[in-house]
Design a protein around this nucleic acid. Structure first.
Lengths: 246, 246
DNA sequence: GTTCCAGTTTGATTTCGGTCAAGGATCGTA
DNA sequence: TACGATCCTTGACCGAAATCAAACTGGAAC
């Protein structure tokens, strides 16, 4: 992840905060906030590390905290009583997680990789957001984009076959895992490392781990992708993948 | 749909607008706006009727308009090139539709029943919203709730069996089609009329029309529901339905 | 009433993806 | 480098839902 802070600016020492050196400072919802607002927000929040597999928010629990993702990848999931799981969202650096303005969280949030987040007590954040329309606007834009993305994902889930799901997933990953720093778009990645285990890919696509494995093997056998490591993907024939995605 | 306007208030005749008699005035995002804001908003919008089956917004088209639903039910859908369809959302009276702050619409919007909507040019609406934080806040709350609802629907789509999907669907309909006027909650409806054909239920659940039909027939045979008309449902054994929903 | 027709139901058959079971690869740790 | 645990792959088989096909139903128009 490329660092893309604004050019360094001198600030009075007592106003120096973690935000000034935050690597997602210009991409997260706090972008655009200036002193003294950023100082006030910074005072409310604290940084936290979450190791891979560790939960941050529990489904149906009281919504007590919200956060910005600084580093790492987290999954949002819902589960049934008998243990079936569906991944309903994935949060990358600069993404916002948690449920502001609501009593309960509809999904669990669990780190997929070691992650760092910038957490806020939800009621503090709610109050601050209501007093800062620019922040609320950023949050609205982000929420609308996430809603679009979530709806777009319902098509593969409900209507696509296993091969189509896998191809759609790989193309999606190739775009989201492209270097999304501050430089000009570099286009979709040809090589990338999935933040998911096979089981997690299955939970994202509504398949079983065996079916996911078989589809990966098939793509490799057909020369569409190379799989140099358990989680590494190299796209050898993008147009074939696009055809398969339907 | 019960009328639930605020108590009648005298206003100067020249300020009288359609909003003053709007049946969703207190539930849509315009709730809370007072004169002269409501007058300004009203001047930007116009009412439109959409008959059942008629489209209002096309997928991937430029996002030119947004709207409040006044009356009727509309579906939001995405389609593949080969004609498969997935319903990704359903809009009821007082719901907001369209994609503000974005260039293109991610889903088509088509009326399921005859409907009336209050439409705005998107760029007019965007400008007005940015100048009225209270309106943006309402839109944010609504978008967050819709995101929760959409994510919750991914579990049935990806992980549930056909009988579970149908049971989940009927329970959901029973709640959303309950009298949602201004009176105290009356609880889920026991009798209701679906705004969907069998094919549309299939498009919502990621099933085929035949499977939907068979599942309905089974529920009737088992005495869980009665089906007095093509689209009419009476829930005879709610706890059985809840068991089946998983 | 009769006809027409879209929408729905029912039946027969197929197939895709799930389930069950076993074996293999990879990684962290000692 | 050996061990163990976890994750992944592969195979055999099964079953739920899709597909293909045909018959039925209930309004709308005449």
């Amino acid at each position: 992840m490329r660092d893309c802070r604004r050019p360094f600016r001198l600030v009075e020492p007592e106003r120096m905060s973690a935000c000034d050196t935050c690597i997602v400072r210009n991409r997260a919802i706090c972008a655009g906030l200036e002193h003294p607002e950023i100082t006030a927000l910074s005072a409310m929040g604290r940084r936290r590390s979450v190791s891979a597999g560790e939960p941050l928010i529990w489904e149906d629990d009281d919504s007590l905290l919200v956060a910005n993702v600084i580093e790492g990848v987290l999954k949002l999931t819902t589960s049934t009583a008998d243990g079936r799981e569906q991944i309903v969202g994935v949060a990358y650096p600069s993404d916002f997680i948690g449920r502001p303005f609501g009593q309960t969280s509809a999904a669990s949030v669990v780190a997929l990789t070691d992650a760092r987040v910038c957490v806020f007590a939800r009621n503090d954040f709610d109050r601050f957001a209501r007093e800062h329309p620019e922040l609320e606007h950023k949050l609205l834009e982000r929420t609308l984009a996430e809603l679009d993305r979530t709806r777009a994902w319902m098509m593969p889930l409900g209507r696509k076959s296993a091969p189509e799901k896998i191809a759609t997933f790989l193309l999606d990953m190739s775009e989201r895992l492209a270097d999304n720093g501050c430089m000009a778009h570099t286009g979709p990645a040809r090589n990338f490392t999935l933040p998911f285990s096979r089981q997690q890919v299955a939970d994202l696509l509504g398949l079983t781990i065996e079916t996911v494995s078989r589809q990966f093997t098939k793509l490799k056998a057909d020369g569409v992708v190379a799989l140099p490591g358990r989680r590494d993907v190299e796209i050898l024939d993008r147009s074939a993948l696009e055809m398969l995605a339907g």
